[in-house]
Design a protein around this nucleic acid. Structure first.
Lengths: 239, 239
DNA sequence: CCTTTAATAGTCGCAGTGACTATTAAAGGG
DNA sequence: CCCTTTAATAGTCACTGCGACTATTAAAGG
């Protein structure tokens, strides 16, 4: 950071790229936009855009999140910096350094094209193919991070509406991890973790279907999960 | 990432900043350089420098690491991206976006001034005061990250020489966490984790002092720690 | 040789959790 | 109105991992 004058430095363009996740129809979906121009015209990409001269990357990311999802209030949504991608050739036109973010949405409002994107669409994660630039790798990194953070944080509630049942919360884990969790054990674990969820007093109900109505909960104040809620080991890792 | 031409974008300078840690005399030390010019002339700062037009940030970080430590081979050292700091006013001269890295060194070769730093010095973490720019925050973030990663990765061996005793490994945890760990329990945990360490067959010894010589171990192939080795809860977190 | 120092070995009890079984409370069809 | 279906909720049991602790072993140094 010393001696700026002693070095010639190339100017970089700095962008943010967003991996925006939501759960829809029991599947993990990610928000993609279709590129209108070269390079990669017609290909799908992560939403994103340039960081403006007077804003930090975090604000740029939240601004883009609002533009791309069409949501009027994105202030409460979970947004977290992932890492920065800086390979010199990641954009064929110029040197672009991109700060990647992951965002989690409770439900999926229909996407609308942002001002700088031809079309925006929620896409099931498993059917994503061949994204533009290095966005495939960014998306994979984001997905892995989300899966890992479910283990030791209360992040799962970020996928849920303000009030939710334990069954819905369990489905978040099952969907993201691609596993099935034991219902009573999950319940025990969640309720035994102080601050993870808090019961909504008016013993309300909600189930759309037939069975016994479930109690409603809100996200609690806790942010970390000690001890963690580990995903079942599909072999490989020691238990 | 679409429509570059539709937007005016300011060019940014992109730098890397490094929080380089080592253990010395039973204390966590960090490598600092003294700034030679304004702003913050005479203040201590994290080593770092500009990313060159043809290199990714990771290579810039490793290059700086070699320059600042004076080590001839930094290829094996642990270097990991922390996050990116992009507040518009973090550098009073211009818009500088900095990708921060954390590096871990086994022992502390005496620092030498890099080409662009007046002086470089290993400083005990606890006596660091008032760094230039936002480096105080970067350093704090890096320290927290290192402490947290000791829990669920095999990172601790990055602080050790190629061959080390379990006592030395335990001291890594004790120093970084500022706690005392039970010797037998630590031993049991480490040896029970496959791939964490592997015994050096020639039951060599090494202790400098008086007691029974300890067996030597090398870092194993494992990278993650399942289940994790949690730091003692000094109250606050649920157990 | 005897003391000191630290590594190594082993024991006990509790908390957390995986795997299960049982019960309760509703919806919906006959 | 009853009876089946569905899902939430309650509870049991055994095993594992770990904190706390005690005992033993193997060297160094006077």
């Amino acid at each position: 950071m010393d001696g700026y004058d002693k070095y010639a430095f190339e100017p970089f363009a700095v962008t943010v790229d967003l991996a925006v996740f939501t759960l829809r129809a029991g599947a993990l979906h990610v928000l993609l936009v279709e590129r209108g121009q070269e390079p990669y015209a017609g290909r799908w990409a992560l939403p994103g855009g340039f960081v403006r001269p007077d804003e930090p990357a975090e604000r740029a990311a939240r601004r883009e999140l609002g533009e791309e999802t069409g949501l009027t209030d994105v202030s409460g949504l979970h947004l977290e910096q992932l890492r920065t991608y800086s390979e010199p050739d990641r954009d064929p036109r110029m040197r672009v350094v991109s700060v990647a973010f992951a965002a989690l949405l409770p439900d999926a409002p229909e996407a609308r094209g942002g001002s700088d994107a031809a079309r925006a669409r929620w896409t099931p994660y498993d059917s994503v193919r061949e994204l533009a630039f290095d966005h495939g790798r960014i998306l994979a990194d984001a997905r892995e991070r989300v899966g890992a953070k479910l283990e030791y944080t209360c992040l799962a509630t970020a996928f849920c509406p303000p009030e939710f049942t334990l069954g819905e919360l369990r489905q978040v884990y099952e969907t993201v991890w691609g596993t099935v969790l034991d219902r009573p054990n999950f319940r025990r674990k969640v309720l035994a973790t102080p601050g993870f969820v808090e019961a909504v007093p008016g013993a309300a109900r909600l189930t759309g279907g037939r069975g016994k109505p479930a109690a409603l909960y809100r996200a609690g104040a806790a942010t970390a999960l000690h001890p963690p809620l580990l995903r079942p080991t599909p072999e490989g890792r020691p238990a």
